[in-house]
Simulated scan of single mutants.
Amino acid sequence: MKNTIILFTLLSSFFEGTSAYPMDPLPSLRFVTIGDWGGIPLPPYYTKQETLVADEMGKIVAKWGADFVLTVGDNFYYDGVTDVTDFRFKSTYESVFNADSLKNVPWYITAGNHDHNGNVSAQIAYSKVSPRWKYPNLYYDLSFTIPSTNVSVRLLLLDTVTLCGNSDDFLLGQPEGPADEKVAVEQLEWLEEKLRGSKEQYLLVAGHYPVWSVAEHGPTHCLIKDVEPLFKKYNVTAYLCGHDHNLQYLQDDAGIGYVLSGAGNFVEHSLKHKDKVPEGYLRFYEAELENMGGFVYVQITPKEMTITYIQPGGKSLFQTTLHPRFM
């Protein structure tokens, strides 16, 4: 594992001297993934890092385009929002992610543990207030077709907190079980039904908690037990998440990509759980404070899914590709 980290640190150093990669000109589906971006509960209700990440997102979307933004939770630190009129929607979200290029791009929302400390129903209700905030249910599915092709993408958005339980970042950190077992079982059954029925060439799943992570929170035991076997059984392309406040890319022995994008608001360097992740899974890790976080840009064409990690300033930290499940 140590050699793997050194190798990808060297690769990151190589990429630091290059601007973000040009995109494939083929017809494609394009989106940004950002996690753990939710400001702070004190004036000015955002962080410097969040504003830099938001500014870079605006520039990248203006340059390359985006069909949507995917959030992977912790949208409002530290205790979510109180109701649909909560001023944090404006001060932490609308007033920060305000680039012209982002104004008409839909945001598909998932909730994190800090969102569940507040009123998640209010975040769902905010979908009726903001035309770009799309949060129909705690968990839901989306289907897309790549323009001018018959190649399709399915995205399943989970609520990992109701699935696994809430976590206390300052105590154990590991969710200790769902608050409502029946609700958790229903979501798990829904997930398997959707995975089983998927015929799309690309099958993506997103949630807040990571399946695999080498950092502070580490792998999520509940997801390894109940969800990872389904990913392998139904040939999922990738799982996108946050929770740990850094950027990671891991890939398992089945070829499933694990995209961790949790550096939208804070950066925390930790390799606390590197020995809890199977040898060879970690392909990229970035948690340098001076880089001020970052996000992930995804482009899906008929031939491949390109995943690019981008920091404020427009530099690409790492890029990798995954392939369709079948053609």
Rank of each mutant, 00 (worst) to 15 (best):
N3Q: 13
L7Q: 15
F8M: 11
T9F: 07
L10C: 13
F31C: 09
V32G: 05
I34A: 03
I34E: 04
I34S: 06
G35W: 02
W37H: 10
G39T: 10
L42N: 15
P43I: 05
P44W: 05
Y45S: 05
Y45R: 08
L52H: 08
V53F: 01
E56V: 02
M57D: 07
A62C: 02
A62M: 04
K63I: 11
W64N: 15
D67A: 04
F68T: 01
V69I: 15
L70F: 08
F76N: 11
G80P: 00
T82R: 14
T85K: 15
D86K: 05
D86S: 04
F89V: 07
S91D: 10
Y93V: 14
D100P: 04
S101D: 02
L102S: 01
K103L: 08
K103D: 14
N104Y: 07
P106A: 10
W107T: 04
A111S: 10
H114E: 03
D115L: 09
H116K: 09
N117H: 11
N119W: 03
S121G: 11
A122E: 05
Q123R: 03
I124G: 05
I124Q: 12
Y126G: 06
S127M: 08
W133I: 08
K134C: 02
Y135T: 03
Y135D: 03
Y135W: 07
D141L: 12
L142C: 09
L142Y: 06
S143R: 15
F144P: 07
T145I: 07
P147N: 11
V151S: 07
R154C: 04
T160M: 02
V161H: 01
V161N: 10
L163R: 08
D168I: 11
D168P: 06
D169H: 14
L171S: 15
E181F: 14
L191P: 01
E193C: 14
R196A: 14
G197R: 07
G197Q: 12
K199M: 12
E200L: 05
Q201Y: 00
Y202H: 03
V205E: 04
A206D: 06
S213G: 10
A215M: 07
H217A: 12
G218F: 00
G218W: 00
G218L: 06
T220A: 09
T220Y: 01
T220K: 07
T220Q: 05
C222F: 06
C222L: 04
I224F: 10
D226Y: 14
V227T: 01
V227P: 00
K232P: 04
K232W: 09
Y234W: 11
N235Q: 15
T237V: 12
A238E: 07
L240M: 12
G242T: 09
N246T: 06
L247C: 06
Y249F: 12
L250P: 03
L250W: 02
Q251T: 05
D252T: 06
D253G: 09
D253P: 03
G255V: 07
I256N: 01
Y258L: 01
S261F: 05
G262Y: 01
A263D: 00
G264E: 00
F266Y: 14
E268Q: 14
H269C: 11
P278Q: 12
Y281L: 12
L282I: 13
F284M: 12
F284K: 01
E286T: 11
A287Y: 05
L289W: 11
E290N: 15
E290W: 13
M292R: 15
V296M: 03
Y297A: 13
T301P: 03
P302W: 03
P302G: 02
K303A: 14
E304N: 09
I310A: 08
L322T: 09
H323E: 14
M327R: 14
M327V: 13
